[in-house]
Amino acid sequence: MMIAALAFYVFAAILIASAAMVVSARNPVHSVLFLILAFFNAAALFLLAGAEFLAMILVIVYVGAVAVLFLFVVMMLDINFSQLREGFQRYAPVGATIGVVLLAELAIVLGGWKFAPGAASLRFAPRAEGVHNTAQLGQLIYTHYILLFQASGLVLLVAMIGAIVLTLRDKTSSRHQVIAQQIGRMAGDTLEMMDVRSGAGVRELGIIRPKPAPEPEVAAHDDHGHHGGGH
């Protein structure tokens, strides 16, 4: 019990400290790295609370995907962050006021929170004892809501088809790979073995330039001209 409480305070303290560093660090790359640290600590807090699935998802999705995306954006876009920070002093009072108002509103809402009388009985949640929450979530998503899960899959498929239909333009200049042609290529088609006398020049041997690549038969009925050589 003691160790758990200690761990909680350590993780929570690091979480808050790194969150503060995210907004105050001068270098945006450092900000993103602190953000990753914050995510890891939040995941540890989830673990302590017994939500191991949420912890892993947080690491995989936020650290693995979102934070990396942030890093890419920060590194690839030329954003002048010191310029963005200009006027921080000037706007600080307004920002602080808005923050206080929001905090007060949150306090009022949470203070007056109460569930509708019938809500608890209508709510669906797997409450099986002795089942891990990962198993419970799996039960929910892949069994109870399998229909909706598959339907969301279809929605994403349609989105993908739509993006391709509306933007893909098949350029005649684009080079497509013809695997059969690559495999079917013989060394003799493009290579010529020469007997080279030592000391003789290229011109004397009659090799002015390399043998041109043979025109492959496959290319005749394929618009996307693909040259057999050079792999």
Binding site: L147, L148, A151, V155, V158, I161, G162, L166
Partner: peptide, 15 residues
């Protein structure tokens, strides 16, 4: 289910 159906239908029609 209603929402998923509406979304699947509409998304295809937008395209």
């Amino acid at each position: 289910t209603m929402y998923m159906g509406v979304e699947l239908m509409s998304l295809s029609i937008y395209v």
